[in-house]
Structure formats: C-alpha cells, structure tokens
Design a protein around this nucleic acid. Structure first.
Length: 513
RNA sequence: GGCCCCGUAGCUCAGCGGAUAGAGCGGCAGACUUCGAAUCUGCGUGCGGAGGUUCGACUCCUCCCGGGGCCA
C-alpha cells in the first residue's frame, strides 16, 4: 500500500516478468525516480539485484525483462541502461490514470499504509509541572504529535498521553520555592526562581495544579491534543499490586529487579532500604497500567538525555510478561538555542528560559512546529531565536503555505469554469508530468516517514511539491486554457496533498495569506 | 572508562545500497499591463580520515580524529 495504484500498475507486470525468469517469492521492483531525465521517468534496479540469484549477467536479465514485460499504453519506452538499470518512459495515459486515482481518493490519498492496524499509545512531553513548557519540551511535543498523526493516518488507533510527575523531590522543591516567595523569602537551596514563581505565589492555591493547567493550555495552543493525563500519585496507588507481580530480590537492604537478564546494564532498585519506592518503581506500576488498558504498542518520546531508559523500560515490559519490542522508545536529540550567535542556557530554575509560549509569540505556531520537526530527530538542532523572530517570513513553511493559498485562489476564481478532471486534452507538458510524478511519491513518503518514525520527511517532501507547483504555475495558465479541466485537476490534487502534509506536522493550510 | 547521537556547500540541514550528491538561508545577475512576485530563472566540484564488504558506498562493518549528551 505504500505506492499508489498508478505505480503498482507498473511494478506488478515487471514483478510478473521477473518471476517468469525464475525469481521466487515476492519480488520488490520498487520504482525510483532517476535524477537524470535522460534515464526516463522511473527506473528499477530489479535486474541488478536479480542477477546474482539467477546467475546471469545483469544487463542480460534487464534485456530479457524489457522484452517480456507488458505495460500497454502506460509506457512508451522501456530501456536497459548502465550496468543493468531498467528505465521506463511514461505515456500520457499513465498521467491521466495517476491523477484520476488521486482525485478519486481526495484526502484519503496515501492513507492506510499500516499492514496490521494496532492500538498504539504515544506518551509525549511529560515534563515536570515545575514550570512552563520550554523549547526542549516543544521538540518533544512537535515530534511526538507528528508521530501520532502519521500513525493515525496509516490506520492505527492512537492515543496521546501525558504523564505528570506530581510528586517527588523536585515537586517538593517547587512548592517550597513558591511558598518562600509568597512569604517574601529567598527560595530554598537549588530552588526555582523566575517571574512565573512570583505569579504563582501571588495567585495562591496549589501551584502544581496551576502549572498543569498552564501546560495544558500551551499544548492546546500548540495543537497537541492530549487524550489522557495520568498522574504519578494515581499510578502509585497500585504500587503494591504492581510490585507483587514482579520477581524482586533483596540485596543491601533494598529490593531489586534483575533487569540485566533483559539487557539492562545493571539491576535496578525498586524499594530503597528505608522502604521508600524509587522513581523506577512508579515506572513499573505505570507500564503495567499502560498494558492493562489494552495497548499493543507503547511509544515513549524521550529526549537524548534519557537514552539510558530504553533498556530498563523494555526490561519492565518483559518482566510483566510482554514482548519487549512492544515498547518503543523514540529518542530525539536536544534543541540548542542561540541568540545572535551566543548560546542561551535553558535552565528552568534560574529563570533564563525560553518558554514554548514565548517562541509561539515570536514566530507563531506554524513556523515553530515546522522548524522543530523539519529536521531528523536524531539530529541536534539549533534555533537562532533572533533569526526566527526577525526573519520568520524566510521560513520555508510560508513557501508551502503560499502554494496552498495560491491554489485556493485559483480554485475560487474557477467557480463556474469546467470541473477538475483527469481527462487529458493532449500530451502533458513537462511541468505537468513532473507535478504528477511528485504527487505519486506521496503515499511512499508518508509510509516511510511512519515506519521510520521520521516525520521530517514530510516537510522535506512538501517543499519539493510546492516547488513543483510554483514552477508549473509560472509556465502554464490554468484558467481559460485548453487543458483547463486537467490543470484544475492538478491544482486540486496538489492542494489536497499539501494540506495533508501540513496537517501531518500540525501546521495550518490557509486559504488566504 | 562504558553507552547513545552527530561530522555532507560560507551557514542550517536533506539524502539510510544504485547512474552526474540536493534544498533553504546568505551572495551575485535577471523576470510582474498575465489565474496571488510570500513567486520564478541563472550562477556551487562539498560527503572528517584510513581500511574493509559489494558489480556499485554519503549510505553497511572496523579503527582513528573531532563535536554533543547520558551513566560511572
């Protein structure tokens, strides 16, 4: 399902021909778009990969495939090139078919790539409620939410969850800091400072509750819809039951879980010698609670500083009798903030933070989400706050949004004109061909982004698609041309795919700008 | 000392086994009586280093160098 029907219609006859030659099992034709237009519209390396299996020279295999394969009018040329590439040149009929498929599917184009839909929980952000969300959490939110959106689009049943650490030493320190401030005293050693502490002190009430409410508002503003908020204090009510199910051992007065048998680098304490449970004990109760709710896959979105958690979380899953691979820990690298070339230190306690709300105020939700998710999650990213603020119109997100708005404008003006259609009046122009081929990439891009947990592929693709559209626009008039129905069809299809791309990363698709 | 991530164009980054490695920003030169100029067109030898696997390596493996992070 990762390729559109228009591509499968090319791939399947080639696969059939390959099987005739003696290839057994599923044959992966995987058509690719060559960089050089002289190499045709699509190319496959099937002959190169088949040659060792068939014990024949690759070019010979390619030649034989080219003679055997029957692609009818979809293709006007099939050539052997280089060491054994098979290059296809598409005929007009293919473009019409591809566009027809896209128009028929509309917003569902590219959806449903999941081979087996699962019940998936994505735990994201889960920052301590000791202060407003920072830019570091913003990457978690943007990345985690895009993962959730991709999984939903692929056909999975997805729930987003936020785990609130509402107890423990940091929380006590936080409460003490607010109380000290309310009395007009200095915060305790290592305590929290900043304007928000003063504001909480002035407001009164439970500062933790207020912080959670503030985080909730920020996430809503950031277009992250949390389905479930789970509090550590709630989870810990089942602590005894959760620990009773584990095979703990005693050592040095403490009670341990032998996580090393599941690949952790050392065993972990759950109950300290003084009888107090560790944070890890709460993790145990929590993961047990997650599985108890029937999720088949648990995704944790964590910053790079938590990479040590991977082994012990999987160990917990295994200890409760689940497949450790049902726990998937997605690690993203940290965000560095710079300002005029100088690094800014993001420390919640010293009040020198850049909060997510401030970032949104400065560059807007669209640019913020785009910027935070447009790079690979394994890449440390650098955000120059000044640049983002002063030159936000340079952000490529506007380039993509502009293409969407421009199409919306054309379609508004087309009221009363011919209906969009995939009917081709004659030969499609080069820019029209390029646009259709770009659109045909989308299902594969979306599926791969989902499988690899790499949402950044979506913005990268969206920029290319917008690029292709802008080029098409400058070469061809849509309204009033002989090819008006086909070009309106192209516009509608492009608009639909751009809108989907933007939605997958939580960015608005404006009708006007 | 162990583990994780990263070294690609001046800068920020795509590219995850295929043909001549791309985009944005910055710079230079052009294009609006025309459906939206937030646009388009042109100008670029750069994969940290050394081995290895392969018909083919930015991509996979080993080592080294360099940056960031976690743990001890």
């Amino acid at each position: 399902m990762s390729s559109p029907a228009a591509l499968r219609r090319l791939e399947e006859p080639i696969a059939a021909a390959a099987r005739e030659l003696g290839a057994d099992g599923p044959v992966d034709v995987s058509l690719e778009r060559p960089g050089d237009p002289a190499h045709g519209d699509y190319a496959t390396t099937i002959a190169l990969r088949l040659a060792p299996v068939l014990r024949r020279p690759p070019r010979e295999v390619a030649q034989e495939l080219a003679t055997r394969v029957e692609l009818g009018g979809l293709v006007t040329g099939i050539d052997v090139a280089g060491p054994g590439f098979l290059n296809l040149t598409l005929g007009p009929a293919w473009y019409a078919e591809a566009l027809a498929e896209l128009l028929a599917l509309g917003g569902r184009y590219g959806a449903g790539s999941a081979v087996r839909p699962e019940r998936i929980q994505v735990e994201l952000v889960s920052a301590n409620p000791t202060g407003p969300l920072t830019v570091a959490s913003a990457r978690n939110a943007a990345y985690g939410d895009s993962i959730a959106r991709l999984l939903e689009f692929a056909g999975h049943d997805v729930r987003r969850e936020y785990y609130v650490n509402d107890t423990g030493t940091q929380i006590e320190l936080f409460r003490a800091s607010v109380e000290a401030r309310a009395r007009g005293e200095k915060p305790p050693e290592g305590g929290y400072m900043g304007d928000y502490i003063a504001a909480l002190a002035a407001e009164g009430g439970d500062p933790v509750e207020r912080m959670v409410a503030a985080i909730r508002r920020t996430l809503e503003r950031f277009r992250v819809a949390i389905d479930e908020w789970v509090f550590q204090t709630e989870v810990e009510r089942d602590l005894d039951a959760a620990l009773a199910e584990l095979d703990l051992f005693e050592a040095e007065g403490a009670r341990w879980l032998r996580t090393t048998v599941w690949g952790d680098d050392k065993d972990r304490v759950l109950i300290r010698s003084d009888g107090r449970p560790t944070y890890f004990a709460a993790d145990a109760a929590y993961i047990r609670y997650k599985f108890a709710r029937g999720f088949e896959r648990l995704i944790y979105v964590l910053g790079a500083d938590h990479h040590g958690y991977v082994a012990r979380l999987k160990a917990l899953a295994a200890a409760y009798g689940h497949d450790p691979d049902a726990v998937e820990v997605l690690i993203y690298q940290l965000v560095h903030l710079t300002s005029g070339g100088e690094a800014r230190k993001a420390s919640k306690r010293r009040g020198e933070v850049v909060f997510l709300d401030e970032l949104i105020d400065e560059i807007g939700v669209d640019a913020a989400r785009w910027y935070l998710v447009m790079r690979g999650h394994e890449q440390t990213i650098e955000i120059d706050v000044d640049l983002a603020r002063e030159k936000s119109e340079k952000n490529p997100v506007y380039y993509v949004q502009y293409a969407h708005a421009r199409i919306a404008g054309i379609l508004r003006n087309a009221a009363g004109a011919a209906a969009p259609s995939a009917e081709l009046a004659g030969e499609p122009a080069p820019e029209e061909r390029d646009l259709v081929k770009r659109l045909a990439e989308f299902p594969g891009i979306a599926a791969e982004a989902t499988e690899r947990r790499g949402p950044h592929a979506i913005p990268v693709y969206a920029v290319r698609l917008a690029d292709e559209f802008h080029r098409f626009y400058h070469h061809h008039r849509v309204l009033g041309s002989e090819a008006e129905p086909f070009r309106l069809g192209l516009c509608r299809a492009t608009q639909s795919v751009i809108a989907r791309c933007l939605d997958l990363v939580g960015v608005a698709a404006p009708e006007r700008m």
